[in-house]
Structures are given as structure tokens and as C-alpha cells.
Design a protein around this nucleic acid. Structure first.
Length: 603
RNA sequence: GCCGGCGUAGCUCAGUGGUAGAGCAACUGAUUCGUAAUCAGUAGGUCGGGAGUUCGACUCUCCCCGCCGGCUCCA
């Protein structure tokens, strides 16, 4: 007999070899058991069919239900298997890649002779429904690696064979449902019939194992929910998100555009978009002055030699535009502002008494991005960074980083962004500078985050070669995260450009430099703002803050005087005396998301 | 860059080898009106660009540009 202990502390007994499902069925109420998709037995997540073993000690059993993230993931993973089964039965010679669960759904990669079409998706969905209806049990099997290799070689599944080869240990697990078998760690639903609501969403190419040198497979994205209503909600949410898309709102609200004749990834700021930008810039400048930054301006092009000194030509070439010839000298358009700021710093000898020196610039830079990655305002080829470089002594590092972080959060919160993902990236394998400096800088970044009470993820080894960094990402309407703020310590450029200060003894000492951008780029930040507010900017940012609407022609004169008074008071206001009905003017002002309407009429 | 989809009026979209369409927007006129679309009329297109097939191409083929969804990339 096995003693089973449940999470509520109660215990029961069963025969050794009893499936965990039977034990849970007895213990749980009907509703909960119906939602149970797997179990945690002594801390390990297992299938419901797993027999309980007698180990002498009580066995801890906990149900995993669809209400948990884990349970939903299992549910979706099984749906991915059904997808693979359907594809394999419909298309001859298809080879399976991988089919993991992702946020909001799952995907499965296939190697097929012909790419899938939207019609294929319908066909596959239909087949999946049949499979679900067939309600085949999903059974786990443990195989020796040799046996598994033989099985998948026989099935002509080279990708699976490759995966098995890389799995450590002597055995692997496979899951069977009807005539379909897949390599999988599991766990899975007890049977395909448990799947209720699912939908295939899109098709995309994806490199095998994410390596662009390897074969491109066809990926099918889908999602699944325990109830049809939840799936419908999800689809509705996606539709709603599309309505908030900054690209759509940018056109509808006449904020910005891109143009074939100008070129991809280059932004034209229309008057209303430019008005918002101008408010942002004024706010930014005022706040930087208040935080002891000096504002500077630098050129858009510079000699190629300078970019060789900085290392950009060597390490960042694929993002640089080709050199242009200026009287026999090569120049390039700038991808960054840092070298210019360094030149200003170096224009005279600096004393430790001068530090920290903080230079800030709204600097427009140009970077070559591969055409496929361009995305509205969020990924462009020309953009303006709210850049700053701070030069300081090692002893000033910690305080300064804390100040920067405070400043960053203050700015983000001013614009209404209160939720973000924060990443701390630490020393990569290839790095410059000393280990002591790295550790010091990483420690300073970390303690600043802790001091601000912020949650953050550590990206070990993901720092740039020149120094550790903090990145703050804001999510767009479709849940895609976009990096805006970044705070980076740099041990490299001060070395390359010999950036120094004189210490107390008059000795030249290498300065530490910090790069930081609070909004990242004005383009990206604006895109995030549009989506964040769905185009309805708060009054201080709104391109038009108020519209004065006249009811009839008779009121035109008075409406104009009201308009003038509001304008003189310093607001962005518009006068609408067109020959239209009041209802029409109101509708239009609403659609334009103008926060205030001033209706002027006889009453 | 790679895979797939797409590109018709300012916008949203019909149009499957035989003279290019609708709604909204624009313009003109009428209407002078109180909280989400007043009515009528007019104009607007090298059908993304180029080459080819064809008696004839928005429609078929190829190349290029751009957009969309992914992949890769983002020091």
C-alpha cells in the first residue's frame, strides 16, 4: 500500500501501481477533477496515468488544473501534438520539427515540400477536430535512446533524431496517440478528447533551431483554451489590439507617415505628431537642465577614421551606411552620438573636480536594419535618441547610476508608463576592461535596482562587450516588448579615445563613461505612447488640446474670440466654424481624440 | 536578408484576359442647424515600378520597390 498525502494535509491509502488519476478522482470534487490535466507527485510533474509507487514514505500528490499556467501549458502542448498528428496524416513526406508552448498559445515547425496556405490551415483544423473527436488516449513510453533513434529513423524524422542525439541520459520519453508518436518530455492530457477550443492563427517561416544557416521550416501558430468563450475573448482581444496599432492610428490621426519615395524605415512627422514630439522634447530639455545635464548638439556625419578609432567600423559595420567621399576623405552618417560627446569632453583637460560631466543630446542617428525587421515607428532606420553620456570617476559610479535610474523612472512615469520588464545584463565571455571594474559596475547597477525596489531579470553573459547594462522594455499592444530605456557602463570607449581626468595628484586617470537613453528613441517612444493611450493622449501631450465648435454662422465671431483667448492662454486649440452640423463637428473632434470641446452657440 | 501573404482613388475595399467600381474623405452648391455622419452635384486612377507573354494585361510570367506576419538580427 502507498500512503498519499494531499496538499491540504489529508492522507489516504491506495494500492501500489494505482494511477494518480484514480487517487485524485476520489479526493477531489467533480468540478476540480474535471479541470485536472496532470499531477505533481513528490514535486515532479507527471501524467495522470502515472502509477504511484511504494517508496516506503508517504507520497505527496497535488493536482495541476487548467486554472494554473502550468496546466494550461500542458493543455496547449497536447493541442500542438494534435496539430502535428493532423499535418502528418494530411501531408506525405512531412517531417516534424519542434512544437513548444509559447505565451498565449503554441506552434509547431514542419519541413514540408510546399509551404502551407491559409486554406491548408482550415483543412488542418478540420482534421484536428476529427482527432479530438476520436478521443484517443495519449500514452507515455520510456525508450532507450538506441530504441528511440531506431524508431524515429524508421519514421523518417531526421529532426527528431538530431534532438535525441543531443538529449543527455540513457532514456527518452515518447508520447503516442492513435498511430501518431512524438518525442516529448511531457506531460500531456490523458486523451485528445480533452481538448475543447483551439484555433490555428498564422503561418510563418522559421529556421530550424533558429539558425539562419539551416533549413527554413514552416511554422504554424495556434492557441487553445479550455472554453470556447475564452478563445472568442482572445480573438476579440487581438482585434482590439489591432485597433490600437500605432501604424493605423498614426495614419488615422495624421501623426506621421512613411513613404515609398523617401525609403523604408524613414519617418515623416506630420504637424500633429510633431506637436506631440515638440512637447516631449521641451519636457525632456527642462528635466535634463533640472538634473544637471548640459545640452549639446553634434553633426550628422563624421570622418570614417573616427569610427575606426571608436571600433564601430570594425564591430558594427553591418549596421553602418556606406562611406561618402568628401574631398578624398571618407565620411559616414552617424550611427551613434558617443564619439562626438567624447570629443567635446576631450576639448580641454578635465579635473576630478569637474566630474561627473553630463552631456545630453537629442541626436538623430542612422543605422542600417535589414528590411525584414522594420516595424512602424518601433524599428526604423533613422531615429532620434534621447542620448546622454556621463563621465565620472570610479567612486562616483554607484551614486550616479542610482540617480540615473531614478531619473529614468520619473520620466517614464510622467508619460504614464508604470509597467515594464527590466533586465540586467552581465559580463559576456568576450569583454574589455578589468574584472574588478565589471564587478563594481554590475554591483552598482544591481544595487540601484534593489534600492528602487524594482523587480528585474538577470541576463547572465548578455552584457555588451564594453560593459554591463540595464535595459527597460515597454510592451506594445500585441505584447511585443520594445526596449526603450537603457543604462550602459562603458569601459571601452574611454580606453580607445583616451578619455581621462586629472586626479588629486594631477595624474591622468581613465574616466568611466555611462551611456544612457531614457526614452530610447523618440520614434519608438512615440509609437509606444500612441498604443499606450490608443491615440487619446493626455491633455499635456495632445496635439490639439481643445476645439472651439460654433453651432451656426451667427456664432462665428464669438467663437473666434473664444478661440483667440484660449490660444493666447498658451493652449493648442482649433476653431471649427465650418458649414456643418454640430453633431458632425463633435463626431469629428471625438474621432480625433481632442480632449476638450468648447461648443459656442446662442444658448 | 530568409519564408509566406499582400500592393486598385487620400482611406476602407469590390473587380479572374476584352473601355476601372462603391462607401467615406475632398471640392462646389443648397441648408443655419445644440451634442457621434444634413442634402445634392462634381472631380479624382500610367491598378506600386519595370520587363515579358498576348491581337489585347489590373488580371498570366520574371525582376525590383514597399507593406504585413514570423524567423534571424538588434554592439
Amino acid at each position: 500500500m502507498v500512503t498519499v498525502r494531499f496538499i491540504d494535509g489529508s492522507e489516504s491509502e491506495c494500492k501500489a501501481g494505482t494511477p494518480v488519476a484514480d487517487v485524485l478522482k476520489e479526493h477531489l470534487d467533480k468540478k476540480t477533477f474535471k479541470k485536472t490535466v496532470a499531477a505533481r507527485v513528490d514535486g515532479t510533474v507527471v501524467d495522470l496515468s502515472t502509477p504511484l509507487k511504494d517508496s516506503g514514505a508517504p507520497v505527496e500528490v497535488e493536482p495541476i488544473t487548467l486554472d494554473s499556467k502550468e496546466g494550461l501549458a500542458i493543455y496547449r502542448h497536447s493541442t500542438a501534438h494534435v496539430l502535428a498528428q493532423a499535418v502528418r496524416s494530411l501531408y506525405k513526406g512531412v517531417k516534424l520539427g519542434i512544437g513548444p508552448v509559447i505565451e498565449d498559445g503554441f506552434y509547431y515547425d514542419f519541413d514540408v515540400s510546399r509551404p502551407f496556405t491559409p486554406e491548408d490551415l482550415l483543412k488542418i483544423e478540420k482534421k484536428m477536430k476529427e482527432i479530438v473527436k476520436g478521443n484517443a488516449p495519449i500514452a507515455r513510453e520510456e525508450l532507450g535512446k538506441d530504441e528511440a533513434l531506431r524508431l524515429f529513423r524508421e519514421l523518417d524524422e531526421p529532426y527528431k533524431v538530431e534532438l535525441i542525439d543531443e538529449i543527455e541520459g540513457d532514456t527518452v520519453s515518447v508520447y503516442r496517440q492513435a498511430d501518431f508518436v512524438d518525442l516529448c518530455r511531457g506531460p500531456h492530457l490523458p486523451s485528445t478528447g480533452r481538448i475543447r477550443a483551439f484555433k490555428l492563427l498564422s503561418i510563418a517561416g522559421a529556421y530550424w533551431r533558429g539558425d539562419e544557416n539551416r533549413k527554413m521550416l514552416q511554422r504554424i501558430y495556434g492557441t487553445a483554451f479550455p472554453e470556447k468563450a475564452e478563445l472568442d475573448d482572445y480573438v476579440k482581444r487581438i482585434e482590439e489590439a489591432k485597433r490600437r496599432d500605432h501604424r493605423r492610428l498614426g495614419r488615422e490621426l495624421d501623426l506621421f507617415s512613411m513613404n515609398d519615395d523617401v525609403g523604408a524605415g524613414l519617418v515623416l512627422w506630420h504637424p500633429d505628431g510633431a506637436a506631440v514630439r515638440s512637447v516631449i522634447e521641451e519636457f525632456w530639455k527642462r528635466e535634463h537642465a533640472r538634473h544637471d545635464y548640459s545640452l549639446i548638439y553634434t553633426p550628422h556625419i563624421a570622418k570614417l577614421d573616427m569610427w575606426k578609432t571608436s571600433g564601430h567600423w570594425e564591430f558594427y559595420r553591418e549596421n553602418l551606411y556606406s562611406p561618402m567621399d568628401v574631398e578624398g576623405q571618407d565620411y559616414i552618417v552617424k550611427p551613434m552620438n558617443c564619439p562626438f560627446h567624447i570629443q567635446i569632453y576631450k576639448s580641454r583637460i578635465r579635473s576630478y573636480r569637474d566630474l561627473p560631466i553630463r552631456y545630453a543630446e537629442l541626436g538623430t542617428v542612422y543605422r542600417y536594419e535589414r528590411s525584414g525587421v522594420l516595424h512602424g515607428l518601433l524599428r526604423v532606420r533613422g531615429f532620434t535618441q534621447d542620448d546622454a553620456h556621463i563621465y565620472l570617476t570610479p567612486s562616483q559610479l554607484e551614486d550616479e547610476i542610482q540617480e540615473i535610474l531614478k531619473f529614468t523612472l520619473y520620466i517614464l512615469r510622467s508619460f504614464g508608463f508604470n509597467e515594464y520588464d527590466i533586465y540586467l545584463s552581465t559580463r559576456p565571455e568576450k569583454y574589455v576592461g578589468t574584472i574588478e571594474n565589471w564587478e563594481k559596475a554590475e554591483g552598482a547597477l544591481k544595487s540601484a535596482l534593489v534600492a528602487e525596489g524594482l523587480e528585474f531579470y538577470i541576463d547572465p553573459g548578455e552584457g555588451v562587450f564594453y560593459g554591463p547594462k540595464i535595459d527597460i522594455k515597454i510592451k506594445d499592444v500585441l505584447g511585443r516588448a520594445w526596449q526603450c530605456s537603457t543604462i550602459q557602463v562603458d569601459f571601452n570607449l574611454p580606453e580607445r579615445f583616451d578619455v581621462t581626468y586629472r586626479d588629486e595628484r594631477g595624474q591622468a586617470v581613465q574616466s568611466i563613461m555611462i551611456h544612457r537613453a531614457l526614452m530610447g528613441s523618440l520614434e519608438r517612444f512615440f509609437g509606444c505612447l500612441i498604443e499606450h493611450y490608443a491615440g487619446a493622449f493626455p491633455v499635456w501631450l495632445a496635439p490639439v488640446q481643445a476645439a472651439v465648435l460654433s453651432v451656426t454662422e451667427k456664432n462665428e465671431g464669438y467663437a473666434a474670440s473664444v478661440y483667440r483667448r484660449i490660444r493666447e492662454a498658451g493652449f493648442r486649440v482649433e476653431l471649427d466654424t465650418r458649414n456643418e452640423t454640430l453633431g458632425y463637428k463633435i463626431r469629428e473632434a471625438r474621432l480625433r481624440r481632442i480632449p476638450y470641446m468648447v461648443v459656442v452657440g446662442d444658448k
